[in-house]
């Protein structure tokens, strides 16, 4: 394995881990639930994405043939992360989980019906 490849893999691994940790720091520090919701939807998806890229590069140059199946994890997370965030936000709105009543949207006061 050449030095450039190793540098690339190392870079993506550390960047990915850093983004994952930043998301967790967000959920540790932020005061209310809706702000905490921003952590896992953004930082962790790109964090895992960068690690998957690192893994794909590593196995492509260090194994048997090209390896791209890590892309599937990234793809899957990019599809599911907004969905689970939306579900959590919806559940929170339904439970009136508001520490800051002034930020309430008027729509959440009425019943929003059975559609999901």
């Amino acid at each position: 394995m050449t030095f450039v490849i190793e540098l690339l893999v190392s870079f993506f691994l550390v960047v990915g881990a850093f983004f994952a940790m930043a998301g967790s720091i967000g959920s540790f520090r932020l005061p209310d639930f809706f702000s905490r919701l921003h952590g896992p939807t953004k930082s962790t998806t790109l964090g895992v994405g960068a690690m998957a890229i690192a893994s794909a590069i590593y196995f492509s140059f260090h194994g048997e043939g090209i390896s791209f199946h890590e892309v599937l994890i990234t793809l899957f997370l990019f599809i599911t992360a907004p969905v689970s965030a939306h579900f959590l936000a919806k559940a929170a709105l339904h439970q009136r989980l508001h520490e800051n009543k002034a930020a309430l949207p008027p729509e959440s006061e009425k019943e929003t019906g059975p559609h999901v």
């Binding site: 907004p82 936000a89 919806k90 929003t112 559609h115």
Partner: peptide, 22 residues
């Protein structure tokens, strides 16, 4: 979904008449 993944916003709710996205 795109709003949830892009700068500083998470979509929370679509009103029942599909007129407004919160």
């Amino acid at each position: 979904s795109v709003i949830s993944l892009t700068p500083g916003t998470v979509s929370a709710e679509v009103t029942e008449d599909r007129q407004t996205l919160i």
